[in-house]
Structures are given as structure tokens and as C-alpha cells.
């Protein structure tokens, strides 16, 4: 595979790129085209740096969840429990902080513990008992959904001082914009964004340059030949689900840091957003194809289109969903057309 990558760096021809790189290129080009178009035709908010950073601030958790989803999807599985798991993590951490006298450290440990526990159980069932990942994680989703209301049935805002301080921590960047009074306002990001970007970088390195990363692709591409190559298929699948669970724990805490409350309705539909982001980023559900950078841009594209719809004043509630669906549709058709054409040429 490395040889092939090197090859198409030299020739640079579309037809010789690997599926992964081809889909990644499409995603990145579309994102920049969309953002540039928004800057040119809508202007206003899109010209400010903070608008872009707000997209990051609001979607830091989704980026982390989508990364976990991509890992599982690359091995050919799926995890639909992450959204409800996020809600469970938020609620547990909130209850720990406010009712059980916990500190930030204990709440983080609880978040990671919940994520890890889900990852281990789901991974074991999928990898070692050969149960279909959709059904296993569907069970996980139901369980997390029910547990959230068992932990606490109502929404409440966390009052813990240390946590509120952490939640309001903003990291100011040297860039910014000048406001109406001519005063320089520095742009900022929340802590979650730093966590998300570190996650993206770590996972990118993991997928690209480690043995585990290549095993993930091999298992997703063709598990039988991966087995013949001496890759432990079961363990690889297990690790993918375990990482996805752990990332859901981390993502859940980042979401918690952003909203600062626990509620059963938190992050509803996040699993589908994560799947959609992964697809827009060029990860395929059949496995073996995908890229973390693509997923990152997938999340950005998804939320940019939402922002554009909102700024265009189409604020009837249904427009956002219909536009997002149309966007997924266009992406899917383009991807499948490109891949089909490529197959024909070969």
C-alpha cells in the first residue's frame, strides 16, 4: 500500500489514487469550496475567525465521537451506541459533581470508565462471540438510554465551582477581529477543541504509521486474507470497539464541558451525525476505506452547511434537516459514481 501511495504522489493521477485518498480529496475540496462560497456570497459572520472557531467549539465532542466511529467503520463494523453513551456520561458526571461531592478528577474517571466498560463489553460480544455489531451496539444504545434516566431522570445544570471555572476556560488565540468600536477582540477556543485536535492527530498517526492502524484497514478490507497474513482479526476488532467506547467516554466529557448540564435528551442523534460525518469524510461502511482527517473535515462540512442554512434565514425548523440530508445524498452519489467509474476503467 505504501508503494502505491508513493506511486500516486509521483504521477498524481486521479485514477491511480487509492480509494481512501480519492475520497479524502473530494471531502477537503468540497469543504473549502463551500466555506469560500459562504464567505463570498453570505459574508457577514463567515468573514470572522470566531465563526469558524465556534463551529469547532460546538462540534469538538462530535469530532471525537466521529473519530471513534471511523475506527469501527474501517474494520467493517458500526457503533450506534455513542450518542446515548454521551448522554449517560454527561448525566453520570453531573450527578457525581453535584450530588455525590465528586471532583473534576473523579468525574473524568467516571466518564472514561463508562466509555471503557461499554467498549470492552461491546468489543467482546462483537469480536469473540461473532454477534453482529449493529445488534450489539443497538443493545448498548438501549441500555445507555435507559440507564441515563435511572441515574437521574431530569435535566439540571451543574453548580460545582471548579467545574464551572473549567467550563468557562477559554484559550485565546493571537488572531481575532476588530469589532464595531474598533477594539481588537481575540478569537478563542474551548478546552474541548484542544482535546479533539489532539485526538485527531493521535489517531491519524495510529492509523498511518503503526501496525495496529494497518491491521484495522486489513481486517476491514478482507478479514480472511488479514487472517492469513497472521493478523489477529478478533483482537483487532476488539481493540477498535474498545477505542470507540473510550473515545465516546472522552467525547461525552467534552460534550459535558461544553453544555455543563446533564439531561437524558443530550446528544440525541449524535450517532447518526457521527456516521454521516464519517461517510462525508470518505469512510465506507463496508470497511477498509477511511481516514481520520476526512472525518474531521466531514464534521466541519456538516456543521458549516447547518450554519449556512441558518444564516440564509431559512429558519423554518425543517430546512436544516432537509439540507443536511440532501448534502449526504449528493456526497453518496458522487462517491459511488467516482468509485464505479474507477472500477470500470480498471
Amino acid at each position: 500500500m505504501m508503494k502505491k501511495v508513493a506511486l500516486n504522489r509521483r504521477t498524481g493521477r486521479l485514477s491511480q489514487m487509492t480509494d481512501t485518498n480519492l475520497l479524502l480529496t473530494i471531502t477537503i475540496v468540497v469543504f473549502f469550496a463551500m466555506y469560500l462560497a459562504a464567505m463570498l456570497f453570505i459574508g457577514r459572520g463567515f468573514l470572522r475567525v470566531q465563526t469558524f472557531l465556534n463551529i469547532l467549539n460546538e462540534n469538538a465532542a462530535l469530532i471525537i465521537l466521529s473519530c471513534g466511529m471511523s475506527l469501527v467503520m474501517i474494520t467493517g463494523g458500526i457503533d450506534i451506541s455513542v450518542g446515548k453513551l454521551t448522554a449517560l456520561v454527561c448525566m453520570s458526571a453531573a450527578v457525581n459533581l453535584d450530588y455525590n461531592g465528586g471532583s473534576i478528577l473523579t468525574s473524568i474517571l467516571i466518564a472514561l470508565g463508562i466509555g471503557l466498560a461499554f467498549g470492552i463489553v461491546q468489543g467482546y460480544l462483537v469480536a469473540y462471540l461473532d454477534i453482529q455489531p449493529f445488534i450489539v451496539t443497538l443493545g448498548g444504545m438501549f441500555f445507555a438510554k435507559g440507564m441515563t434516566t435511572i441515574v437521574n431522570a431530569t435535566q439540571f445544570n451543574v453548580q460545582n465551582e471548579a467545574f464551572v471555572a473549567l467550563k468557562n476556560t477559554r484559550i485565546y488565540l493571537p488572531v481575532g477581529s476588530v469589532n464595531r468600536l474598533g477594539k481588537f477582540v481575540p478569537a478563542y477556543v474551548e478546552i474541548g477543541v484542544v482535546v479533539a485536535i489532539v485526538t485527531v492527530i493521535v489517531l491519524f498517526i495510529l492509523l498511518r504509521w503503526t501496525k495496529l492502524g494497518r491491521s484495522l484497514y486489513a481486517v476491514g478490507g478482507n478479514s480472511q486474507s488479514a487472517n492469513m497474513l497472521g493478523i489477529n482479526v478478533r483482537r483487532t476488532k476488539f481493540i477498535a470497539h474498545l477505542l470507540c467506547g473510550l473515545l465516546a467516554g472522552i467525547g461525552g466529557y467534552v460534550y459535558f464541558l461544553h453544555v455543563g448540564s446533564g439531561a437524558p435528551s443530550h446528544a440525541s442523534g449524535a450517532e447518526m451525525n457521527a456516521i454521516a460525518s464519517s461517510i462525508i469524510g470518505g469512510t465506507m461502511l463496508t470497511g477498509g476505506v477511511g481516514n481520520i482527517i476526512g472525518t474531521f473535515f466531514g464534521v466541519l462540512s456538516l456543521s458549516t452547511i447547518k450554519n449556512i442554512v441558518a444564516l440564509l434565514g431559512l429558519d423554518d425548523a425543517w430546512w436544516t434537516n432537509i439540507t443536511v440530508a440532501a448534502m449526504i445524498c449528493i456526497f453518496l452519489v458522487v462517491q459511488s459514481a467516482v468509485l464505479l467509474r474507477k472500477k470500470d476503467r480498471n
Binding site: M272, I275, A276, I279, A317, W318, W319, T320, N321, I322, V324, A325, A326, I328, C329, L332
Partner: peptide, 9 residues
């Protein structure tokens, strides 16, 4: 997933 997202809208 497309109609899942858009259907209710």
C-alpha cells in the same frame, strides 16, 4: 440515513 435525517422534517 438520508430519509432518516430528513423524513420527519
Amino acid at each position: 440515513l438520508i430519509l432518516y435525517t430528513a423524513g420527519r422534517s
